[in-house]
Amino acid sequence: MTATLAPALTAAAPLLGWATHGLWLTRRLATARRDPLTGLLTRDGFTTRAERLIRHNPGRVTVLLIDLDDFKSINDTHGHPAGDAVLTATARRLTTWCGTAGLAARLGGDEFAVVVLDHTGRLPHLREDLAQPVTYAGMVLNVSATIGASHPAALLLTEALSAADRDMYAHKPGRTTRRR
Rank of each mutant, 00 (worst) to 15 (best):
T176E: 11
A105Q: 15
R179I: 02
A89R: 01
A101S: 09
V114Y: 00
C98Q: 03
L107E: 09
D165M: 02
L141A: 07
G138I: 15
T158F: 08
L123M: 09
R175F: 07
M139I: 14
T90C: 11
D118L: 12
D165L: 02
A113Q: 03
W97C: 05
P152N: 06
T88E: 14
G174I: 08
A145I: 03
A91Y: 09
A91F: 11
V114M: 01
D110V: 00
K172M: 05
M139Q: 13
S162V: 06
E159Y: 12
T100R: 07
V134F: 13
T96W: 12
R166Y: 04
G121H: 05
A104M: 04
G108T: 09
D167F: 00
E128T: 10
V114K: 00
D165C: 01
R166A: 02
T100G: 09
F112K: 00
R93D: 10
A113K: 03
A131H: 10
R178Q: 10
G102Y: 03
P124C: 03
A89P: 15
V143P: 05
S150R: 02
R180C: 10
D110Y: 02
A163L: 06
G148W: 02
D110E: 06
Y136I: 01
D165T: 01
A163Q: 04
E128S: 12
A164M: 04
W97R: 04
E128P: 13
T95P: 09
N142H: 15
S150I: 04
P133M: 11
S162Q: 09
A105L: 14
L161S: 00
L155E: 03
D129F: 14
T176H: 13
E111N: 12
A153L: 14
A163H: 01
E128V: 12
H171S: 11
G99E: 05
Y169A: 02
F112I: 00
A113W: 00
R127G: 15
V134H: 13
T90W: 05
G108E: 05
A137N: 15
A153T: 15
L126W: 13
S162I: 05
P173V: 09
E159L: 10
T177Y: 10
L141R: 04
S144F: 11
P124Q: 03
N142P: 15
D110G: 01
H119F: 12
M168P: 02
R175H: 09
E128D: 14
Y169E: 00
E159G: 07
A105R: 07
R93Q: 04
G99Y: 08
T135H: 15
G148E: 04
A153I: 14
D167W: 00
R178C: 10
A91E: 12
E111F: 14
T96L: 09
A91S: 08
Y136S: 11
P124A: 01
T120K: 01
A101G: 04
A160Q: 06
P124G: 03
G109P: 06
V114E: 03
V116R: 01
A113S: 07
Y169Q: 02
R178L: 08
T176A: 08
F112H: 00
W97L: 06
P133S: 06
T158L: 08
R127L: 12
E159V: 05
S162T: 08
L155I: 08
Y136A: 11
G138Y: 14
A170Q: 01
P173K: 05
L107G: 07
C98A: 08
M168L: 03
L107Y: 08
